[in-house]
Design a protein around this nucleic acid. Structure first.
Length: 260
DNA sequence: ATGGTGGCGGTGCCA
């Protein structure tokens, strides 16, 4: 079972490249973020033509998350509980049933949180706390759970190109990292870090200031695994070359494979 | 040190 997460930065701009990558990588499940479209604009037909069912939560111009799957999708939730006033399309949770097993997944687009002296930062921290509460509930399922997405969190200084240049950024604040660890410490495994110790392995490079050619990146897209999923973890790979293609997203896909 | 890019939607907001 191969599960990927990919912030596409507009599904309509990226649909051609996305389908090309789906055909190559052949993931079973894909968690998408930053669709930047309303429900009726989502290219479900193109995706079904490529062999993927889809479930999504759209929003005009901003945010938007989806689950794609070769197997049956049963949507469990279309928003993260805990803040009724939050109308951003940032969370979708679903069961994937391949006939042999049921996998619980969520596609998460965490708030960026910049600048940190505005209400955007406390919103990010509240979202992280709400996610911790949901992640705790999901552990009670005693099943394989994969919480994937753009967390907008660089967990350590080794996960950014130069901490000195980005020290004031919401993605590296001590409070942000503390809230991230509160989720991990419930018993979730950062799939990439479980298998790779190398520093400076990135999933996002800004469009600005030549960040990609300079490799000025950030590791902020993550796959968090419940114990039952972590037991089965086989591989975790950042498909870095996708970022270098024409009309690329500013993020690149990362995927993990779980043994049967 | 500074300015630099991209997406949406049709102006500034967001990243």
């Amino acid at each position: 079972m191969k599960i990927a997460t990919f912030n596409v930065n507009s599904i309509r701009r990226r649909i051609g490249g996305l389908i090309a990558w789906l055909n190559e990588a052949q993931p079973d499940v894909v968690l998408l973020q930053e669709l930047k479209c309303q429900d009726e604009q989502f290219p479900a037909l193109d995706l079904s033509g490529a062999g993927y069912q889809s479930a999504m939560v759209g929003q005009k111009a901003y945010n938007g998350v989806a689950v794609l799957s070769k197997h049956k999708i049963d949507v469990v939730m279309r928003a993260l509980p805990g803040e009724d006033a939050d109308d951003h399309a940032r969370y979708i949770e679903a069961d994937i049933d391949n006939g042999k097993e049921k996998l619980r997944v969520a596609s998460i687009y965490l708030p960026n949180g910049n600048p940190i002296d505005t209400p955007k930062f406390p919103y990010k921290l509240r979202f992280l706390d709400r996610l911790r509460a949901r992640a705790q509930e999901l552990l009670a399922l005693d099943r394989a759970v994969v919480l994937g997405g753009d967390y907008n969190v660089a967990p350590t200084d080794e996960d950014v190109f130069d901490i000195r240049k980005v020290a004031g950024d919401a993605l590296v604040q001590p409070q942000t990292r503390l809230a991230w660890r509160a989720i991990v410490n419930l018993g979730y495994t950062d799939a990439f870090r479980a298998l790779h110790g190398e520093p400076h392995q990135y999933t996002f490079w800004d469009y600005q200031a030549g960040a990609w050619p300079r490799d000025n990146g950030w590791r902020i897209d993550h796959l968090l695994l419940s114990p039952q999923a972590a037991d089965r973890l086989e591989q975790c790979v950042i498909d870095r070359d996708v970022r270098g293609r024409p009309e690329a997203s500013d993020h690149t896909p990362i995927w993990c494979s779980l043994k049967a």
